[in-house]
Design a protein around this nucleic acid. Structure first.
Length: 216
DNA sequence: ATCCCGAGGG
DNA sequence: CCCTCTGGAT
């Protein structure tokens, strides 16, 4: 439908304009005080709601506020603290190992480099892009999570399924200065209106140019 | 492609 | 029951 690049760019402009109108201030919904804490919260957010992550990180960060402290926490204790976010053994292992790496190699600071971030345990492109964009204001790419993937496909901005391919296509049609806010706004819209299972198309301001409306 | 793995909604 | 929720590693 929007296979042509020019068409997808035009559609991207409509989407960005409406996003700005509907969600003028779209921030990360995860609670954090430092880049390190945002990194940990984002690792924990895999397959889990941000609301639940915030419940867990309240106690987690009270006990282990930085990389130096978390690197010295017993993994079993971390497992208990992050248990309700799902995948808790992997997540506990990853936040512990990532904290150790940061503490030993980077003096506890979070490096502002996508390749270095992706090298940390439990950190992929999605998490790295969140940290660089939200904590440091560096537009290193576009965060493609389950919401961004679903909405950009519905709105005709991409027809890809793979997150990396979706990001590549989005980078071509969304202005760089919009990259950081673009994802946050789509995520808000995905939660409030364009839900995965029962989208509220009647309340959706994007319906007038959304190719998905009326489609089974 | 499959596994990790928990809570909440429908 | 099945699906979804700000994924990553094998």
């Amino acid at each position: 439908m929007f296979s042509d690049l020019a068409d997808r760019k035009a559609q991207a402009r409509r989407v960005v304009r409406q996003l700005k109108k509907d969600y003028p201030i779209a921030e990360c919904a995860l609670n954090y005080e430092t880049p390190f804490q945002l990194l940990i919260a984002t690792i924990l957010s895999a397959q889990c709601t941000d609301v639940r992550v915030n419940i867990v990180t309240k106690d987690l960060f009270a006990q282990y506020p930085d990389a130096h402290a978390m690197a010295r926490a017993p993994v079993k204790t971390l497992e208990k603290l992050v248990q309700t976010t799902g995948f808790f053994r992997n997540k506990a292992k990853n936040i512990h190992a990532a904290s150790q790496a940061l503490d030993e190699k980077f003096d506890g600071e979070v490096p502002q480099d996508l390749a270095v971030l992706v090298d940390l345990p439990g950190v992929g492109r999605k998490t790295a892009n969140v940290v660089l964009g939200t904590a440091f204001g560096i537009p290193s790419g576009i965060v493609v999570d389950t919401h961004v993937g679903r909405l950009t496909k519905r709105m005709g901005l991409t027809d890809k399924a793979d997150a990396v391919k979706i990001e590549k296509e989005l980078l071509e049609i969304v202005p760089k200065k919009e990259w950081i806010q673009f994802s946050h706004r789509l995520i808000h819209h995905g939660r409030a209106i364009c839900a995965a299972r029962k989208p509220k198309c009647h309340d959706c301001h994007f319906a007038k140019f959304c190719p998905q409306v009326g489609v089974a």
